[in-house]
Nucleic acid binder design. Structure first.
Lengths: 121, 121
DNA sequence: TTCATGTGTAAGTTGAGACTGACAGGTGAA
DNA sequence: TTCACCTGTCAGTCTCAACTTACACATGAA
């Protein structure tokens, strides 16, 4: 898995760092499932599950795809995306370094991207 | 770093998965600091910083120690604890497996430790 | 004594994320 | 037509972590 910047790393960590979402990952580890079935297995409401799946998808941990079953029903399947992140001080420092590089690339001069105040006071 | 059960893994991930705490780790990566100084550098209130440091310490990411400075002042120093966690599906499944083993060991018969309902309905 | 420095904590507010319930829409089968 | 499935989303509530303000208490130096 490629190196992430702080924002991506944070999205990833925040996504995994939640009990329900860990359970979702465990369940999806057994194979691809559609939303309603997954909700039933976990004993979780479907709208809630949607929120978690959305979060996991944004962080790149799961992939969703709408499929038509044999009998014509639409089923939203989710499968686990392969991920492997080494987490130590270096990972974090590297992410921070990437932020700087990102800012160099897309902004002209790294003017405050996340914090509107720029440098801390 | 040894294998963690779900609870420990969750504490770890939730601790790191927060922007402010990532900043704390980055700052501590440059060396040991005492709380007030760290608060100044990060532009964060001291009570707030305490909360974050507490969280990080419980997750085993930092270590705090009270020291007496030359001029007799008590300073609470924090330093980064070495940590290195590989995060992938196996890590998560292994954590879940450890939960079961833990339950075997300390309870008589794995009766619902986290979820009071036991098996999902 | 007063000031500037530090630790530690209690009490309150706030805001975001987690969660519920209800809806609108689609399909195929009885 | 009704039922049993499914998807997708809205509008709320609720809970808890995050955050602020304020305090009590030490120390050494001016």
């Amino acid at each position: 898995m490629q190196a992430m910047n702080s924002e991506e790393l944070l999205a990833f960590l925040a996504a995994v760092g939640h009990a329900q979402r860990l359970r979702i990952i465990k369940e999806l580890a057994t194979g691809t499932l559609y939303v309603s079935e997954l909700a039933r297995r976990l004993g979780v409401s479907r709208p809630l599950l949607y929120m978690h799946l959305e979060r996991l998808e944004k962080a790149g941990l799961v992939i969703g795809r709408l499929e038509l079953s044999d009998d014509g029903k639409a089923l939203k399947y989710f499968e686990l995306a392969p991920f492997d992140v080494q987490l130590n001080v270096d990972t974090i420092l590297t992410a921070a370094r990437l932020d700087g590089a990102d800012a160099q690339r897309d902004g002209s001069g790294e003017a405050g991207k996340h914090s509107p105040k720029g440098t801390p006071q």
